[in-house]
């Protein structure tokens, strides 16, 4: 039985198409990422799959159950962690956990094994009110609550949003460790580099899925040779490259600039000498493997400029 499957999901908010015929299949035990910026439709899709929103059309099943008709049964099998911290801030860590355990007719003790790796880290603070926890600890608590009833499928909506790199890495470590319990996980994020931490990903933009693949598969599909270029002054390199007649795409990445050419085959030295002729010194150039972000931007390049409707 496929843990998550969706077909032709359409979701409209007034005139805005939040989801435009989205189809998706996630296999058992997979850590699956929905990658895309705000407004791509990630949250709507997760809410529809989590039985919290009704789609305008299309069908979806969780563990073989229809999200519309069998939502009650689905809710027994899923864990959900919304984008916004949604536990009771006036209750303590322990009280929140006990409450969610009681809703599922279970207890913290009964399912302690499943959450212990995560819960152990916040257990010293179990008497503290949830509202007084740091961001990282809030997440650990939210995740513990989402797991307290041994869900088969776990939905996490942008768990790393606004979170510093340290807590972000902690969270991904926790998700990786859940795979040993064979929990299927669907997680959304706007951080492209987090795609590498997933088994498979869907890149989303403007309500559409642009590509679904493993991160490696996606990168292997990057069509053009990609070059990384740098000199002392990235801003200058960007400007000069954008003016270059053969330039296809020019994007800064850290202190490097990623460049693709309109031509199929090029000589990197030609670009180097172009830059050096335009008063850029110390130019380094090398061919590199694309990142997920390169793939994303190449797939969305047509959408870069906003056209008023």
């Amino acid at each position: 039985m496929t843990p998550i499957s969706a077909e032709n999901i359409v979701m409209n908010y007034g005139k805005v198409k939040a989801l435009d015929a989205v189809s998706l299949k996630v296999e058992k035990g997979e850590l699956f990422g929905l990658i895309g910026p705000d407004g791509a439709g990630k949250t709507s899709l997760i809410k529809i799959l989590g039985t919290l929103l009704l789609a305008n059309s299309g069908t979806a099943e969780i563990e073989g159950m229809d999200v519309v008709k069998q939502y009650q049964n689905i809710r027994r099998q899923i864990g959900y962690m919304p984008g916004k911290f949604s536990l009771y801030q006036d209750l303590t860590v322990e009280e929140n956990l006990n409450f969610y355990a009681s809703i599922f007719g279970t207890t913290l003790e009964e399912n302690y094994d499943l959450i212990k790796d995560i819960y152990k880290q916040i257990e010293p603070f179990k008497k503290r009110r949830a509202g007084k926890l740091s961001g990282g600890m809030k997440q650990k608590l939210a995740l513990s609550c989402a797991l307290i009833h041994k869900p088969k499928v776990l939905f996490l909506d942008e768990p790393t949003r606004g979170v510093d790199p340290v807590s972000r890495q902690d969270l991904w470590d926790m998700l990786q460790s859940l795979k040993k319990d064979n929990i299927t996980i669907l997680v959304s994020t706007a951080y492209m580099e987090e795609a590498l931490l997933c088994d498979r990903i869907s890149l989303m933009d403007h309500g559409k899925i642009l590509a679904t693949n493993s991160p490696d598969g996606l990168i292997a599909n990057f069509e053009k040779p990609l070059y990384a270029i740098r000199s002392g002054n990235s801003f200058k390199v960007i400007k000069k490259l954008k003016d270059y007649e053969h330039a296809n795409s020019v994007y800064p990445f850290g202190d490097w600039v990623h460049y693709t050419d309109k031509r199929d085959t090029i000589d990197p030295l030609e670009i180097k000498s172009y830059l050096e002729n335009n008063d850029t010194t110390n130019v380094e150039i090398k061919q590199i493997k694309a990142s997920v972000e390169d793939c994303y931007m190449s797939l969305t390049s047509k959408n870069q400029n906003y056209e008023p409707a």
């Binding site: 989590g50 039985t51 919290l52 009650q72 049964n73 809710r75 027994r76 899923i78 959900y80 919304p82 916004k84 911290f85 949604s86 536990l87 009771y88 801030q89 969610y100 809703i103 599922f104 609550c145």
Partner: peptide, 13 residues
């Protein structure tokens, strides 16, 4: 308002 209802709704309660 706080969003706690959303989480409550995601449970079979």
């Amino acid at each position: 308002e706080l969003g706690t209802m959303e989480l409550l709704l995601s449970t079979p309660i």
